[in-house]
Computed example of a mutant assay.
Amino acid sequence: MRIRPLVALSVAALSAVLLAGCAGSAPQSTPTASETGAASDLCAVAVPEGDVAASVSVSGEVGELPTVEFEAPLEFTSAERVVAVEGDGTQIADGDYVTYALAVYDAATGEQLQAGGFDGEPIPPQPITIGSGPDAYFGCATEGSRLVVATPESQSGGALVYVIDVLEVTPADAWCAATEPGDVFPTVEYSADGIPTITIPEGEAPEGVQLEVLEEGDGATVEPGDTVTVNYTGVKWSDGSVFDSSYERGEPAQFSTTGVVAGFQRALEGQTVGSKILVSMSPTCGYGEAGSSEHELAGETLVFALEIVEVTEQ
């Protein structure tokens, strides 16, 4: 089994928020959810158990930096995995978001190379989806589990040992679920030409996704995975500046609901064609916390005024 090293997926201080996007287009992301939601699929893609991984001694409480001992150098030619501690929490299903801690060791010397997420400062949640890479490490582990994964030498680096603590599992359909606006929420005004101008209020930006339906359309309902045509303007909560606008480009954008960041996805699914919506999303539901992603909007709470123009069923 060939798997991508998790270190390569955990750049920027071990953060693994797998978000991507490009300026001047819709707020795109790698898909973050599957329609199957089947834990059994993740069980099947997990790295198999092996004696080398089992030989690694790991002690300490889950969530705290472990004490790891093994007889170096470890010699093996294929990836191995064991569940050192089996948690009794929720089992990871395809598309679920996992908050975790990670320590990485050199299999040749036993030296600790990286560590993050322990002692109350977890790495930002990551979606675990079939074929994503991390699926082979996490498999269908349960919340509260401690995993040991050994990966052989490859073109990208030497042999490694990972200790991964599964701290929290959030079901895909509950991640960044939209709520009604709180007391502090932006406002929007439309020009005679239908161009929105968003005003950011004074006060701290809210967590999660908050959504207000400004005008409810009478068209078809947007379902998960549908392709939508949308007009939108996006601004930063921090300074109110516009960072992207289909109105300014003169034409709406088209994309799948599962191809955008979580907050934007929540703003679309379940709404009807013709609806105008104002939505705010904190960094975890957008492009990640500052330092967790190289995207220029990482760390920003984003606000969108959007109108659903058309929908095409998947």
Results as ranks from 00 to 15, higher is better:
Ala103Gln: 01
Gly219Val: 02
Asp226Thr: 01
Ser282Phe: 04
Met1Ser: 09
Tyr247Leu: 14
Glu212Leu: 11
Leu302Trp: 08
Leu74Phe: 01
Ala174Glu: 12
Ala174Ile: 12
Gly139Ala: 01
Ala72Tyr: 06
Gln254Asn: 10
Asp226Leu: 02
Gly117Asn: 01
Leu113Trp: 00
Glu300Asp: 00
Ser78Gln: 11
Val209Thr: 09
Leu302Phe: 06
Thr257Glu: 02
Glu296Arg: 15
Leu147Ser: 02
Leu113Gln: 00
Leu65Glu: 07
Thr36Val: 15
Thr227Gln: 04
Leu9Met: 12
Val184Ile: 14
Glu300Ala: 02
Gln314Leu: 11
Tyr190Asp: 13
Arg249Gln: 11
Val309Ile: 08
Gly50Asn: 08
Tyr97Gln: 13
Leu297Cys: 06
Glu35Asn: 11
Asp173Asn: 04
Gly288Cys: 05
Glu296His: 14
Gln91Cys: 07
Ser78Ile: 14
Ala16His: 13
Ala53Ser: 01
Cys176Arg: 11
Pro224Ala: 00
Val242Asn: 07
Val166Gly: 00
Gly203Phe: 09
Val166Pro: 13
Ala8Val: 15
Asp244Gln: 09
Pro66Asn: 05
Ser132Ala: 06
Phe70Ile: 12
Thr179Phe: 06
Leu268Tyr: 03
Gln271Glu: 12
Val309Ala: 02
Thr233Gly: 00
Ser245Met: 09
Pro122Thr: 03
Ser59Val: 10
Gly194Cys: 03
